[in-house]
Amino acid sequence: MPAYESEGGDRAGRRQIVLSLLFLILAATTLYLPGHVQEEVASSLRSSVLYPFIATQRAVADTRIRATRMEELQAQLDSAVASVSAHRTLAHENRQLRSLLGLREIAGPAFVPATVVRPGTRGSESMLLLNVGSADGVAVNDPVVSAEGLVGIVREVRGRSAIAMDWTHPDFRVSGMAVDGEVFGIVEPRRGSFREEDRLMLSGTPFHAELADSSLVVTSGRGSVYPRGITVGRVHSLAEAEAGWRKSYWILPAVRPASVTHVLVMTDSEAESPDDVLHLFTEEEAVDEEGEDSEIGGEEGAGEGGGGAEGDSQSESEDVGGGG
C-alpha cells in the first residue's frame, strides 16, 4: 500500500493538478462537441469496449423470445400459415388485375422486425438500441412503430445495429392530424413530473377547429419522414388556446416506450416509399374497439388477447389522465 502523502505543493502535486485540469477541460469539451462527433465517439465505444454487454443483452433477449409459450406460438403459426395461404392467392390475383389495368406496382412498406435493447444508464432514457441495421435495409429517419402506433425514429445506423430515439426525446417532432384529415398540427413531447407522465402535445391546430376528446391522432405524412396514418395517440383534453389564433391539445400516446420490447422499423427499401399506412393502424383500432364493445357487453371469453391489451391501455389512460 503506498504511503499516504498530500498532493499539494511539490512538483508531482503540480503535475497532478495540471493532469486533472486537462481531464476537466476534456470532459467539458465533450459537452460542446458537434452532434455527429458525439455520435461517432459513442458509436466507437459501443462497438468496441461496450460491445460484449450489448451482445449479452441481445442474447438474453433472444433467449426470452425462445422461452415464450410454445403452444401460443404454434397456434399463431397455424393462423399465420392459413392467412398467408389466402394472402398468396389474393396477391397473385391482385398482380394479375394490376397488369390488366396497366398500373405500376405499388410496393407497401417493408417492415423489419427488431428487438429493443435499453441501456438503462443515466441519460439514455429516450434511446433504443435495435438489433437491425443497414444490412437489413434500415436507414436513418426510418420510423419505428409497434402494433399500437408510433414509437420513434431511427437516428443512427450501423451494419447490424441501429439507434433510435423514442417520442419522449425533446427533439422529437412529427406532423400529426386528426384521423379524418380535418385538423393538422405538430406533435411534440412534454415532460411530466415523472417520466411515466411524459405526454404528447398536438400544437398549432387552427383555433376554429375542435377536436373531440378521445379522437384519434395519426401522422399526416407531411415532411416525408413519417408516412401518413401511423397512430400517434388520442386527444385527452385541450391544453391551451392562444386568443383567436390556435389551440393545443394533450395527446395520450398510443405507445409507452418503456414497455416496448419488440418493434418494427418501416423501411422504404421496396420500389416505392410507403406514403399511406392508415389502413394498417386503423384496422387495428377497429378490432380493438370491437373487443371493447364485446367486453362491455359482458361476453366472457370473447377476444382474450384483444381484451387484455385493451385493459392495459385503459389503465394506462387512467394513469396519465390522473397525472394531468
Binding site: A28, T30, L33, S126
Partner: peptide, 12 residues
Amino acid sequence: AFSVLAFGANTM
C-alpha cells in the same frame, strides 16, 4: 456512449 439526451454530462 448510451446517452442521447446529454452526451458529456456523465463524463463531466
